[in-house]
Amino acid sequence: MNCPDPLPLDHAKILRYKNHKARISEFLSGSMEWKDDSLKPVRDAIRKSLRATQAQSCFYCRRMIATERRNMGEAIEHFLDKSKSYYRKWAFHPLNLVIACQPCNFVKSTKDLGDAAVQTATYLQPHTGTFKWPHPYFDSYSENIKISPGPVYSPIPGAPRHNQASVMIKDLELNSIADIDDRVQFTAREIQKLQRRAFRMARRQRKFGSKERYEAYLTELENRIERGFSDIFMV
C-alpha cells in the first residue's frame, strides 16, 4: 500500500529541538492549546515528516491526499485523542501521530481507542493495554486489513487484530458503498489535477529552472498519478 508498513518514526528527532521542546512543555503543562500559533512551527515540522513517511496518504483509508496550501485535505491525527486528559501527555508522541484525510479524521473524531490500562499507563508501548483499532505502529495494517478493488475494506480472517480491524472498518464506514463511490470520485479528480499540472510544467519547461529540478518535479507528478490509479484499480 502507499503508507509504509510499519510506519517509520522519522519525526522523533523533531521533538528534541530546543525551541520545540520549550513550546511542547508549555502545551503539556496546560498553558496553551494545540491550535496555539506558537505551536505552528512544531506542527508544521511534524506534518512535513508524516507526509513523507506516509507517502502523502491517509493512514486509515490509504487514500492519496492532495497537498494544499492550507492543508485543508488532511489532519495531524492523534490515535489516542489529545482532548482526553489522560492522553494529553502523548499529544506529540511519535507513536501516537499519523496523517489522516479529513473524512477519516472527522468520523474518527474524539473516539477513545484505549482501554483502562492504556488510559492509566505511564508509557506508550505495544503491551500498554488493549487498543480498539489496530495501532498505527504496533500492528501491521496489511496483516489485518485487506483492500480489494473499489476500494473495498475487509478484515483478514485469522489476522492478529481481526476484531480491531473489523471495528475500525465499521467505525470509519470504510465498507459503505456511498463512501466507496466518493473515494473513487475524489481520487479521479486528484488525478485530473495532477495531469493538468504535468501539462502546464511541460509547456513552461524553459521557465522552470534547472533541468534537474524540472525532472524531479515531473517524476513526483508521475509517481502521484500512478498512485492515484493504484488507489482506484488496486494494480
Rank of each mutant, 00 (worst) to 15 (best):
S57N: 11
I180L: 08
V98Q: 01
Q192M: 10
A216Y: 09
E74C: 06
L28F: 05
Q56F: 07
A216D: 14
V118F: 11
I14D: 13
P4E: 12
A116H: 10
R23M: 12
K84V: 02
L7F: 08
V152R: 11
T53D: 14
T110P: 04
I156G: 04
A178Y: 06
N19F: 09
E68L: 14
L124N: 00
F92K: 02
H78E: 00
G150E: 09
L39K: 03
S83P: 01
D181H: 11
E222N: 13
H135Y: 10
E68K: 05
A75V: 07
Q192R: 13
T130S: 11
Y153D: 04
Y217I: 00
H78Y: 05
D44K: 06
I24T: 06
T110L: 09
Q119W: 00
P160D: 10
N144L: 06
W133R: 00
R197Y: 09
D81S: 11
A159D: 10
G30W: 08
Y87H: 06
R88F: 06
F199D: 15
P134Y: 01
N96M: 05
S142L: 10
T128K: 03
F186W: 08
K193L: 13
R47W: 12
A55P: 00
Y141H: 13
W34I: 02
I24C: 05
F208Y: 15
